[in-house]
């Protein structure tokens, strides 16, 4: 397993695509943090109707965990691409020749993606903190960088982003066609989940279902939610949320293990 893991990590470090994703994520998170930090600290007087003022740690959390709330598509894509590349370039053939144990292959892929996911978590979270904190302390109630109420969710946001990469490998294992996997990831994260979350929370009977969606579960793990802080949805508790979130990755990977990864490699 150690050899397989080293091999997987070398696969990451010897390709460039994820670096691009990482850089784009850093820039995008910084940009969103600036926009969000201004919008949550704007005085009611100078904003029109609908502006939401957040105070204290709520404001800080909303800005600092933007990576998980809106940037999770990056590690998710990186994980999905890591697996689907093997099929796209047929590198799965030499990979399975080097070690024919397909569960080891999948396990090493999941673990290595989580390690790389941590890099996404660190970069994404740090850039939203770095861009948002000065604005919060200048215009709002402060940056709250010393408060554990803020730092724990911020640290968990790093973890959550790492798990998104893990989930991405699960997606790629199930949908081995790279283009299809990317389309599904983009469609799900950018349209389906946001719309379904808002839609479900509008219907009383289904409100409970929305918190089991992967994005909601990841926010439950972090303990901060842009949707929730804007009063738009309920979350699970931290531990149940984390379990539901992890289950997404595990279940996808397991289904993939016994379908696509059991098939002939031709």
């Amino acid at each position: 397993m150690k050899a397989a893991l080293t091999s997987e990590l070398r696969k990451w470090t010897s390709t460039r695509l994820w670096w691009v994703l990482l850089l784009v994520m850093a820039a995008y998170m910084a940009f969103l943090a600036v926009v969000m930090a201004f919008s949550v600290t704007i005085e009611p007087g100078d904003a029109g109707a609908g502006a939401t003022i957040l105070h204290g740690t709520d404001a800080a959390l909303t800005v600092y965990t933007l990576g998980n709330a809106l940037g999770y598509v990056f590690p998710l894509l990186a994980g999905a691409i890591a697996m689907t590349s093997e099929f796209r370039y047929q590198t799965i053939t030499p990979a399975l020749l080097a070690d024919p144990r397909r569960s080891v292959f999948l396990g090493a892929k999941l673990l290595s993606a989580t390690v790389i996911g941590l890099a996404f978590g660190l970069v994404g979270t740090l850039s939203s903190v770095a861009a948002g904190a000065p604005i919060l302390s200048w215009r709002g109630d402060g940056a709250y960088l010393g408060s554990s109420d803020v730092l724990v969710p911020v640290a968990l946001s790093v973890v959550a982003l790492a798990i998104w990469a893990f989930v991405g490998v699960g997606v790629g294992t199930l949908i081995t066609n790279q283009v299809a996997a990317i389309v599904v990831v983009l469609a799900f994260t950018q349209f389906v989940e946001p719309i379904v979350r808002l839609g479900l929370s509008a219907v009383d009977a289904l409100e409970g279902v929305a918190k089991f969606l992967p994005g909601a579960a990841s926010e439950a793990l972090v303990g901060a939610s842009t949707y929730a802080s804007l009063g738009m949805s309920d979350l699970l508790g931290r531990v149940p949320g984390a379990l539901v979130f992890l289950a997404y990755g595990l279940v996808l990977a397991l289904i993939g293990r016994f379908t696509t990864l059991r098939r002939d490699i031709t």
Partner: peptide, 24 residues
């Protein structure tokens, strides 16, 4: 096996280094 099974973005040396751990 026939047909190139290489990641086009990887260098030749890195291609071998990827499999080196398992081959030992």
């Amino acid at each position: 096996l026939e047909a190139a099974s290489f990641h086009p973005g990887r260098t030749a040396l890195d291609h071998l280094r990827v499999f080196a751990p398992q081959v030992g």
